[in-house]
Design a binder for these strands. Structure first.
Lengths: 136, 136
DNA sequence: ATTCGTTATGCTTTTCTATATATTACGCAA
DNA sequence: TTGCGTAATATATAGAAAAGCATAACGAAT
């Protein structure tokens, strides 16, 4: 990471950063979230839950549970898997899964815009303590 | 472990719900979040970290850690505590703490508005499965 | 029939967080 | 001086989530 130095560091305090997370809920609770959507993208890319999980440093068990959770909550599944056969099988992203990805990223982009706007609204009143790391 | 589950009503609607959480970050990570702000309010109400924690079913240890984390990251502390004395001591919310509460709730209200607007934008395309009646 | 890589599934272990418990310090008041 | 209720701090326990591990089923290719 490259730190941009604009002026000499004086006694000015940091401006706090806004952060957030968003989800789409279904009948069992979480239905779509950042991690799940990335997982869907990786499944599309690799055609395999195993490879998708590995590419995210996630256990296969966890990845499978997430896929199963999504499939249980949709009328039409996002991922269709086959066992056995050429290459041992694999998994495929359905058209609905594709749309889900688009839907969530749209939501996510809107959210980032929201955070940026809120950031701009922050009053100068709130003074945070500086850190050593901020000096480099 | 009981097999009794909350009876699910047969919903005919399948519109997904949007959910989210927001935080304000400081030099050590989380600085302000929903739980921390409620804690500040309770400290103001009870004048005691112990009573505030109890009112939230939160361990004193955890509450103290949160207060300490906020105080470490602000230039001027949000909570001032005194040990010993009449009643054994207590804790008091500072003016900056008061402003922090207002600031966060404003952020939080804006976020709720955002979620409502996003909800309205949701396409009818995404079909979720209806709440599953117990088949056991 | 054997091999192969993946899905699917159960069980165990690790990890992280918060709770629970215990102890000391504190200072006013009786 | 003693008692009281709180702050402050250390250590231990519990619960949940994820990872790790083991194993069976599967079906095309060889």
């Amino acid at each position: 990471m490259h730190a941009v130095k604009k002026k000499a560091l004086g006694k000015t305090s940091n401006s706090p950063a806004l952060r957030g997370r968003i989800w789409i809920d279904g009948s069992e609770g979480t239905f779509l979230g950042h991690g799940r959507v990335v997982l869907l993208e990786r499944i599309r890319e690799y055609g395999s839950i195993t490879k998708a999980a590995k590419s995210m440093a996630m256990s296969y068990r966890h990845a499978w549970d997430l896929v199963d959770s999504m499939n249980r909550q949709t009328k039409k599944p996002f991922v269709e898997a086959v066992t056995g056969g050429k290459g041992g099988g694999g998994a495929r992203l359905t058209e609905d899964g594709e749309l889900a990805i688009l839907l969530f990223w749209k939501f996510s982009r809107d959210f980032q815009v929201f955070l940026k706007r809120e950031q701009a609204k922050l009053p100068r009143g709130l003074r945070l303590r500086k850190t050593v790391a901020d000096s480099e």
